[in-house]
Simulated scan of single mutants.
Amino acid sequence: MTKLPTGKPIIPFSPTADDQGNPTICHCCGRRAIGIGMAPKGDPAYVCGECVLLVEELRKVRRLDVYELAALDGAVDAMGDYINAKGLTDLQFYDELDQRLLAKAAVMGFADRLRKLLRDGAAPF
C-alpha cells in the first residue's frame, strides 16, 4: 500500500478488527465490515456486505495501492457531481448536513469505483 511520508498508509483500512477481534472496517473499501474475513492469519481482512461478492477477485490482488489511487478518481467525480447538483462551489456556505453529504459522496464514490475496478479485472495502469 502506498505510504505517506509519515510511514502511514494513504488509506488506512487496516486493522479491520478491534482488540476483541470484532469486525470494524472493510479491508477493501473502508465501509463498515461484517464478520467475513479473507486472511488466514494476522489481521482477518474483514470485508463489507458489498465487497464480500468480490472476495475471489480481492484474493488475487496483493497490493491495492494502484487500485486505490485509481479509485480516488471515483471520489473526485462523486464530489463534483454533488457540488454541481447543489449549485454552490464555495464550501464555506455548506451547512453541517451538506458537509456530511459531500463527505459521504466522496466515500461512496471511492468505494464504488474500487469495487468496479476489481470486479472488471481492469488493471488501472
Rank of each mutant, 00 (worst) to 15 (best):
P9E: 12
R119S: 13
R62M: 13
C26L: 06
A122D: 15
E56Y: 03
A85D: 09
K41P: 05
K8F: 06
G74V: 06
Y94F: 03
P5V: 02
A122E: 15
I83P: 01
I36W: 07
A78D: 00
Y82R: 06
P23A: 07
Q99F: 02
Y94M: 01
P23S: 07
F125M: 08
L118S: 03
L97I: 15
C51F: 06
E57G: 02
V55L: 11
G35W: 05
R31Q: 14
I11G: 09
I36P: 02
T24K: 06
Q20N: 15
K8W: 05
E68A: 09
R100F: 06
R119I: 10
D18Q: 00
L118H: 03
L101N: 12
I36F: 13
D120V: 00
F110Q: 02
E50Q: 04
Y94P: 01
R100Y: 08
Y82F: 14
M38N: 03
L114D: 06
V61C: 07
C48T: 03
A75M: 03
R115P: 03
N22Q: 13
M79S: 07
G80R: 13
R100P: 02
M79A: 15
N22F: 11
D65L: 00
L58R: 12
G30Y: 00
I36T: 11
I11V: 12
M38S: 06
E68F: 13
D19A: 14
P23V: 08
F110D: 01
Q20V: 13
M1W: 15
D98I: 04
G80C: 11
D95R: 11
N22P: 04
L97T: 15
R100C: 04
G30W: 01
A39H: 09
P9H: 05
Y82V: 01
I11K: 14
G7A: 01
D65S: 06
Y46A: 00
R100H: 10
R32M: 13
R115M: 07
R59V: 10
K104S: 14
G35R: 07
Y94I: 00
A17E: 04
I25C: 08
A17G: 00
A75H: 03
E96D: 12
E56A: 11
K86T: 01
P12N: 09
D98Y: 04
L114A: 06
R32A: 14
K116C: 05
G49Q: 02
I36E: 10
K8L: 11
L54A: 08
P124W: 01
C26W: 05
R119E: 14
I11Q: 14
N84A: 14
C51P: 06
P23Q: 07
D77W: 09
E56C: 03
Y94R: 01
D43T: 05
L53K: 13
R31T: 13
F110I: 00
Y82H: 04
G109P: 04
L114M: 12
D95E: 09
G21S: 08
C48D: 09
K104L: 15
K104Y: 14
R62D: 15
L4Q: 13
I10R: 12
A111R: 08
A85K: 11
A39I: 00
G74F: 09
G21M: 08
P15G: 00
L64E: 05
M1R: 15
I34R: 00
D81Y: 10
A75K: 02
F110Y: 13
D19Y: 09
T2H: 10
T6E: 09
Q92I: 11
L69M: 14
P9S: 08
V61P: 07
V76C: 14
E56D: 15
L102C: 10
L4W: 07
Y94A: 01
I11A: 11
R31V: 07
A70T: 03
